[in-house]
Design a protein around this nucleic acid. Structure first.
Lengths: 212, 212
DNA sequence: ACCTGAACACCGTTCAAGT
DNA sequence: ACCTGAACACCGTTCAAGT
């Protein structure tokens, strides 16, 4: 029997997390401030601190909530293909919330709700003949690659939205063909060349390069 | 003959950049604020805006300066080995300034001063038999992996310095062995397993996986 | 041309007080 | 127990004025 006393809560963690996800979805991760979030749940910024320790804990909650909600695809049995498929599913999941990379990378591992991906990758690697230690290495290499790819793409999009010539464009426009013979031949096509999605190609290379 | 008039400058771009690098070296990238930097050069925050457009341009200048100062290693002739060596040199260079990842990734390419690395990698890839388009893909995959690895390691170090149990530690302590059979067997060794430097292993895998 | 001080519009977070 | 308002200690940047 619950006999807790005191003022009944006006807002819940659930409400806060839901509102936070909505804010990010609508106005991007930069818009998620404690004050904005408070306004969103009809309260004050300081009330939030009664439900989450600080902003970092909030982001962690957010991530768990988000990750747990994503459906898990059926994976092929063959270990190689299973690793690639699990990596791509992980990539898709995190692509949906690029802000998560900044939280996740701190521990080079995902939140509870997202541990399914590393579990699958490590398990498949062991089935492919690696030791558990090697399998962990493989997972981490794949994760670093995934985090780098998503981080890069998120930053590129942000830059594109801001408009105006990027630093790279300025640099590439006056590239010295003597010093950079290869880069100068692709300078004008760089935008197109780098717009292609090469994630799968990279994952396959890593998997093929690391499995016996 | 220079006949420019007006008040003579008290501070120069050079001075600003040098001071900024010193601040970062001494107190980390988080300590680099316009106000702190101004104090360091004996001026006001607002005076800085007469020499750099905004903080982003300052960071770009910083990066160029830093990258240009790094000595370039001699690379082996054999294309595969050259790619690996160039990637590792790039990794070393950027490791020295993890803050650079955030600037660089926006354009998935480096500053002028650092263009040497992609040039070498792309060139070696072409010598290994790839088309220029494929070579650019390889470079980008390597770069994403490199950025992810450095970003992850920088974040891990930051976290370690802060002390206290990480989120991962808490999660791993109560990991369900039924749901995560693989991860739970390595949970207690995770710290050690992930402390190992696997960058070279990853780069070799990518190179071997992508070259014919 | 270059520098300054005051001010703007923000942050995350703490603290003492209210209900 | 939960919420509030005021305040602290910051940010990057703009603007009008000085030399």
């Amino acid at each position: 029997m619950s006999t807790r006393t005191g003022r009944p809560p006006k807002i819940s963690r659930r409400e806060i997390v839901t509102a936070a996800l909505r804010v990010i979805e609508e106005d991007g991760t930069g818009a998620l401030t404690m004050r904005r979030l408070a306004r969103e749940v009809g309260s004050t910024a300081m009330a939030l601190y009664h439900h989450v320790r600080d902003k970092e804990e909030l982001l962690l909650l957010l991530l768990d909530d988000y990750a747990a909600a994503i459906p898990r695809p059926a994976l092929p049995d063959e270990p190689r293909e299973r690793m690639v498929a699990a990596a791509m599913a992980m990539h898709d999941a995190v692509s949906g919330c690029p802000w998560a990379v900044d939280i996740l990378k701190a521990d080079d591992l995902m939140s509870v709700g997202a541990l399914w991906y590393p579990e699958q990758i490590v398990d498949a690697a062991v089935h492919a003949g690696l030791t558990i230690e090697e399998a962990v290495d493989v997972y981490r290499i794949i994760w670093h690659y995934t985090a780098g790819e998503i981080g890069g793409r998120a930053a590129a999009r942000r830059r594109r939205e801001e408009g105006g010539p990027t630093y790279r464009e300025r640099v590439f426009a006056e590239l010295d063909a003597e010093e950079f013979p290869r880069l100068s031949t692709v300078a004008r096509r760089w935008e197109d060349l780098t717009a292609r999605d090469t994630y799968a190609k990279g994952v396959r290379a890593i998997v093929n390069g690391l499995l016996p």
